[in-house]
Computed example of a mutant assay.
Amino acid sequence: MQVLVDADACPAMIKDMLFRAARRTEIVVTLVANQYLRTPPSPFIKAIQVPAGFDAADARIVELVVSGDLVITADIPLAAAVLERGGHALDPRGNWFTRENIQERLTMRDVMDQLRNAGIDTGGPAPFSTRDSKAFAGELDRFLARHARNRAHNKTPPRGTD
């Protein structure tokens, strides 16, 4: 299991949490972005810079994700692709994308796009808050604890540390 991060729009606070989690759990965290990313030195933290272009980082994440991986993203179409590949998708505000809610989220995204294209001001997401970071931290910790229990039960070595 690895954690892949759609890093272009991921808040710095979330990246820092992920860096700490990588060191603590020895699970590989890979940031994918179309810009250079500075990461702390660690065998468990990696960064991939993709060429500039529409959805280039998303396409690379979809190429890399395998069943059981965790992807951190606020991008709904990317989350849908991750779920199709058997991965888990968590947004930086601590909300899970699931097979049960992804179609509704895609539909709502399309409706909002249509409204914006018609010139209607739809506002936007609320500013990222401390409450959001706490919600994310709680969901990440629960997911990683569940993964650790499963790994101990199955006695499988951490992936990506060879």
Rank of each mutant, 00 (worst) to 15 (best):
V29K: 01
T30V: 11
L31Y: 09
V32G: 08
A33D: 06
Q35G: 08
Q35V: 14
Y36A: 14
L37W: 04
R38M: 02
R38F: 07
P41L: 13
P41W: 03
S42A: 13
S42G: 10
P43N: 06
P43H: 06
P43W: 00
I45G: 08
A47T: 12
Q49K: 14
V50D: 06
A52R: 14
G53Q: 08
D55F: 05
A56T: 15
A56H: 12
A56S: 15
D58R: 08
D58Q: 00
D58W: 09
R60P: 03
I61C: 03
L64T: 06
V66M: 11
S67W: 03
S67E: 14
S67Y: 02
G68E: 05
G68M: 04
G68C: 02
L70T: 05
V71W: 01
A74N: 13
A74Y: 05
D75Y: 07
I76F: 00
P77R: 11
P77F: 09
P77K: 07
L78A: 10
L78H: 07
L78T: 10
L78C: 11
A79M: 07
A79F: 06
A80S: 15
A80D: 11
L83Q: 02
R85S: 13
G87K: 05
G87R: 06
L90M: 01
L90E: 00
P92Y: 09
P92F: 10
R93W: 07
R93S: 09
G94T: 02
N95Q: 14
N95S: 15
W96P: 01
E100R: 13
I102D: 07
I102R: 08
I102N: 07
Q103G: 01
E104I: 06
T107D: 13
M108W: 04
V111K: 03
M112N: 10
Q114E: 14
L115K: 11
G123Y: 15
G123W: 12
A126R: 15
F128M: 00
T130A: 14
R131H: 10
K134G: 08
A135H: 10
